[in-house]
Design a protein around this nucleic acid. Structure first.
Lengths: 215, 215, 215, 215
DNA sequence: TATGAATGAGCCTTCATTCAT
DNA sequence: GATGAATGAAGGCTCATTCAT
């Protein structure tokens, strides 16, 4: 009965606690609906301390975005070995993506659902991250196109559109997997991979993509 | 000199004005950041009248979601002739979808960006609409599968995932088209159709889908 | 028992009440130390209403300054008949000044003590008022100089300094009269008139100024 | 690189630094708007040290008032030689006053602008100082009156009023000189001396006071 | 049908002040 | 002698909502 509030921790530790709490509350409620009181309470500190370390609600949210962006990008990059064909790399990246978002639903909600809503200041930060991922995927697709035939058969603009669609599909499936706990990261990745790589047309005819053995 | 505020209009008309204003303000600012004052002012009526007709901010937002949902679903249904194979129907639906969202950016923002953020009460309504669309797409895919071979080669669960991915890709492309005005609804639809129908694998090899002549 | 809070008054009346309360609280405590809560309570309304009508603490304070400035300048102008020599006009003006400040101590405190402190935005307004008074006095002094001999014997710069000194002396005496209730406006005016018109040198020698009979 | 914060200084030195910083910040911003953080930072020490030495914001402000009061009174006393007639002593005192305030604008602002605003506790201290100066001037005027004719021709009450006026005029001119840098201390003193000693009446007629040669 | 007048509640932010080392 | 860590208490401002007409 009664939280024993840990006292006098070094700044770095407290700051981490605050960011953890903030991601959780922002993720659950969104930027506007989240209150600094709630964040402070969840972090186990008083509100003035939050302000002392993170200056304002806006900066706190920015810090959340930056941290979660970096974590997500890092997770995807780490998941992609670099070996194998473009399909294999895409498969690896998707698995890492779905695994990370499934393990960090609030962080993902901050990035996907809330950051784009908050108007100017955050859109900048989150768009930057999203574009980093889109660029990554774009690179994979272009590389795949070069693999298939020496010249880039697909014009840049089309590649961009495809990457956009792929990322959107991934985001949507992440939401699906987040909602229904029986959907595993691997299943989501497989679904998307089939969809993206083989296309509905092929699927209709019973042809489907599957990772090379051992993946 | 100054706005002459029209007086004593029939209820239906006033209600429409209010919903128009609300969709605009909610779409631009999101649920929490939108204020009833702004909505009333944009609608050209006093705040108590808004409450008289629409009861609360929450109900007003719900009404917006319902109206925009219905409009979007209707537009997609209207776009699909029912004639032709599954691919043709999908193509028609996508074109209608992208055309409608491009013409109603605020309505689309309400549905896509903001309604999911607002917590419980709205999630219900928007999820309902989204699921209606997913069900529609699911039906198309299942029909296509039956066309290809008599038995449903794809299990329900997989079909659901595919529909989810397709809708997500469409949403993402709608955002893309909304951002960059040089992207037409038709181009967005074509990009998605290629992606979805042929799959990246086929595209890599130079095979692509294209609508039957006359579409 | 207890204040019956009058309800539903027309806006103009409420606004007056708010300004009255604000002048009182600002006058007693100064800009920073005054709280909007206190002002609202003294005005007998809720805080949001104060904001609805007067927008912000800063604007409220500005409105106070403007109202009290205008009242003071009007009182002084009204007190000066325009007839008689420069000394008589000065005498009339001083009496009006001391009478007004004695009757409106909070208004005077707002102008004299607090408005100069509040940084930029208010300094502008209050300096404008003060300069209006200084200009008025400056005009009187210059007129007197012309009366005495055709050419302006006193250079502008010196006249400005004298006016500054005179106004400062008046302000100081207003504070004195405000502190000690036995000092009447008339006595303060007489003291200052003697000081200013005859100078200490003459006073030392028993010569003093006095208003023409009937003043 | 960066401020090397001097450590372990004797108490007296640290206290001086703090008072210097406090006078500066209080002078620029006023009592309420000044923050202990700003003062501590400007003093180059941590906030707890300020509290260790000076106990509270109120006491710190009091200490500022006392120090600046003492310095001002000392400067004026030092400027008055004691030789010469009353007019000469007044002239010396005014010059010292204007010189000191011009050199210590923040200290002067603390005394003149801010200390009277802060309510009860400070009014006491600053009024004490002001009364010391008023008493000093009162003494001069009374002495002058005795010089002119053996018996005190002016009743005490009138002398008090005159002193009040004189001090007020001086304060006003100090503000004037502080605002316009082209106004020298000597010019301000001369303007006031003419005003006070000769009176506007005499000035109008071309008669003016001037210091005995050598002053 | 329509509105001017009004408010309870809450949120972001800051400040003077203290504790433990 | 000196400080990093921490907070209770307020203050400015806004918002959804209602009452009386």
């Amino acid at each position: 009965m009664g939280e024993v509030r840990a006292k006098r921790m070094p700044r770095a530790v407290r700051e981490r606690q605050m960011l953890d709490a903030a991601v959780r509350v922002f993720g659950e409620r969104g930027y506007r609906a989240a209150s600094m009181d709630d964040i402070a309470e969840l972090a186990g500190v008083s509100k003035p301390l939050v302000y002392l370390y993170l200056n304002s609600k806006e900066e706190l949210f920015s810090a959340c975005i930056r941290r979660e962006s970096a974590a997500l990008v890092a997770a995807v990059r780490a998941g992609v070995s670099g070996a194998g064909g473009a399909d294999r790399q895409l498969w690896d990246g998707l698995r890492a993506f779905f695994t990370h978002t499934a393990h960090n639903p609030d962080g993902w909600a901050v990035l996907h659902s809330h950051a784009r809503t908050g108007g100017e200041p955050f859109a900048v930060e989150v768009t930057a991250m999203r574009e980093e991922i889109v660029a990554f995927v774009t690179g994979l697709i272009a590389a795949a196109a070069r693999e298939a035939h020496g010249d880039p058969a697909l014009p840049d603009r089309e590649v961009a559109g495809l990457a956009q669609a792929l990322v959107g599909a991934a985001e949507s499936l992440a939401g699906w997997a987040g909602t229904d706990p029986s959907v595993t990261a691997k299943e989501a990745a497989a679904t998307l991979m089939n969809f993206a790589w083989s296309g509905l047309g092929n699927l209709m005819e019973g042809r489907r993509w599957s990772p090379a053995p051992g993946a």
